[in-house]
């Protein structure tokens, strides 16, 4: 049975989540640069408007038409490939198995 405290917890979670969601989208703007890090080290930094294919040890990152996406990955879950294209400031693609982060700034 739901009690008063439950509703307080639900509301707090919803409020926190939605507030942070607004914070995420507020001031969202098209990014300029792409930063690719692998195992904590920056391996590529370049403009989003320069078409380029960056090959890492396990992932292939493609930058074209102002978007960046991971074309292929050698891992099992393919989360990074399924993330799709990113182009807005602050958007990221993360590949946990290979510790690769693609970030638009």
């Amino acid at each position: 049975m739901l009690k008063k405290g439950d509703y307080i917890i639900f509301l707090s979670i919803a409020f926190l989540g939605v507030a942070l969601l607004f914070f995420n989208f507020f001031g969202k703007q098209t990014g300029k640069t792409v930063i690719i890090t692998e195992k904590g080290e920056t391996v590529y930094e370049g403009s989003l408007s320069d078409d380029k294919t960056v090959t890492l040890s396990g992932n292939t990152v493609v930058i074209e038409n102002g978007c960046a996406y991971i074309e292929s990955a050698n891992c099992k879950n393919q989360v990074c490939v399924n993330t799709g294209e990113i182009s807005e400031k602050g958007e990221t693609i993360v590949c946990t198995p290979n510790r690769v982060v693609v970030e638009v700034e």
């Binding site: 979670i13 989540g17 995420n24 904590g40 958007e91 990221t92 982060v101």
Partner: peptide, 17 residues
């Protein structure tokens, strides 16, 4: 992985709830 993952925070908070 670095600070970039912070953008997942609101989604993860709501999904966790």
């Amino acid at each position: 992985l670095g600070s970039a993952v912070k953008y997942y925070l609101p989604f993860l908070i709501l999904a966790g709830g």
